[in-house]
Amino acid sequence: MGGAEILFQGETISRLLSGLMVTIRISLVSVAISIPVGVVVGIAMSSRHLLVRAVLRAILEFVRVMPQLVLLYVVFFGSATAFGLDLSGEAASVIVFSLWGAAELGDLVRGALASIPPIQYDSAYVLGLSRMQTFVHIILPQALARLMPPTMNLVSRMVKTTSLCMLIGVVELIRVGQQIIDFNRFQYPTGALWVYLAIFVMYFLVCWPLSIASRRLERRWAA
């Protein structure tokens, strides 16, 4: 099985790594935006106002039901057509992934808040804590602990799904791999397998620690 040389010629590995950096950058920025927005959305979704809940629920379902690819097209091409904006592919990707992350996290936060037993609120009330104090000292820390595993899961899904960004012209890991394969089609006809193997290893090295962390946290907070 020849073709492995493709990985060691010229700048293959360093180019793949730069693609990986784009993948990681889009994921990290999106996660950094999703987390605070998602927490706020989740708290708002636990609100007693029916209208607030209904509106957020509608947005959330929309973002979740739409395939990410469609969202990417809508934001990337739609922003140009409708608003005359010239968004870069990466900016459009960050917008889509932040929306998606915020929607998913919002629902996770809502679920985590709802899972706190009412007795926790009662105990805090009896101890004289205000609603805000109860939320800050008792409810939120417990909800966040429960959120860690599903959030890690979401982040690793996000990392993987950024591969779709190449379809709006973002040169991320997979796209770089394809360029390398195309460029070397004649010199290394069987190189594709090796390039994809390298890509697999790179995704694995990013996502595996997340899944270990998720499992650790799950065990730690199991009780």
């Binding site: 007795i119 101890l127 000292h137 820390p141 009780a223």
Partner: peptide
Amino acid sequence: GMVFQSYDLFPN
């Protein structure tokens, strides 16, 4: 002050 039937300590 009040103490309840179920374990109501703050787990965090």
